[in-house]
């Protein structure tokens, strides 16, 4: 019961796109940053977790239950990329529908988030800006006391102040060690701040899924000339870029590499750099 999300060998084929053999695991108490370029398969994976699509193979467990079970669905807080579900309803009507739908709806908690996110109760939901709708749906997701939050691009459309506020909300949520969050985001700086785990997928394939602390400890960026680059054993190279200034190399297991090639200088690397290196650079793992 310590695992919040367990995905094993998830595959789903469409014509033109396939999600292939995706596996990852998120313990309770963790925040997983789910990253990848547009069309990498992030939303498809989240849809598979939510049983919104049939899968061709694989196994998905959420909070110790099979996906789609009513018992686990009650414990999920979900915010998807498009938040138009209540466009034809007023703010109060939306709250009324949610409170009837959710067994664990907490009206005091709802009012708390309405106030905290400064949601305009008199305005029609349809008239909300994109960011405002996002806040509304995050408030709705939190107000029924979920254990696991599944959030698809939850900070997009929010101004920097509100984004910061949301990150605090997520951090507070995770203070209960039974809770967990899966958060897909393009804004990787958000993940640098709060993620405990990172899963990176590209073109439907899993590139890595690891604890962020491991990545930050092991992975480093180094700049060197061709002669030094040629000395770096292939197993250490995740990806590299070759420019007129020399080689920029993203290396794995940098501590061990530093013992082999002490002349190399290493810099810390951000999640965004890892993504960019992989997508735009030349890949060392192939």
């Amino acid at each position: 019961m310590d695992t919040a999300i367990e995905v094993k060998g998830l595959s789903k084929h469409y014509s033109g796109f396939s999600l292939q053999d995706i596996s990852f695991c998120l313990p309770r108490g963790g925040i997983m940053g789910f990253i990848g370029a547009n069309g990498a398969g992030k939303t498809t994976t989240i849809k598979a977790l939510l049983n919104l699509i049939n899968i061709d193979s694989g196994e998905i467990n959420l909070l110790g239950h099979m996906r789609g079970e009513k018992e686990v669905k009650q414990k999920l807080g979900v915010v998807l990329d498009e938040n138009n579900a209540y466009d034809n309803l007023s703010f109060n009507q939306a709250a009324r529908v949610e409170s009837t739908m959710r067994a664990d709806w907490d009206d005091t908690l709802w009012q708390y988030y309405v106030k905290r996110f400064q949601l305009p109760a008199r305005q029609k939901v349809q008239e909300y800006s994109r960011g405002m709708k996002m806040k509304l749906f995050i408030a709705l997701a939190l107000a029924h006391k979920p254990q696991l939050l599944l959030l698809d691009e939850p900070t997009s459309g929010l101004d920097p102040l509100m984004r910061e506020e949301m990150l605090s909300v997520f951090t507070e949520f995770i203070q209960d060690k039974q809770h967990a969050i899966l958060l897909s985001s393009h804004i990787t700086s958000d993940l640098d701040k709060i993620a405990t785990h990172v899963t990176f997928i590209h073109e439907g394939r899993l590139i890595f899924s690891r604890a962020k602390s491991d990545i930050m400890e092991d992975w480093r960026l180094t700049c060197c000339a061709k002669a030094e680059f040629d000395k770096i054993p292939q197993e250490f190279i995740f990806a590299y870029r070759n420019s007129s200034f020399g080689y920029e190399v993203l290396v794995k297991d940098s501590l061990r590499l530093a013992q082999i090639l002490p002349q190399l200088a290493f810099n810390n690397v951000s999640i965004e750099e890892i993504m960019l290196f992989f997508v735009h650079g030349q890949r060392g793992y192939e």
């Binding site: 669905k73 579900a85 959710r102 067994a103």
Partner: peptide, 18 residues
């Protein structure tokens, strides 16, 4: 028609409904 335009079913099925 409203449900289709608002992607309601996807939202409801992400919630506690089957």
């Amino acid at each position: 028609s409203y449900d289709e335009a608002n992607k309601w079913d996807r939202y409801a099925l992400s919630g506690p409904l089957v």
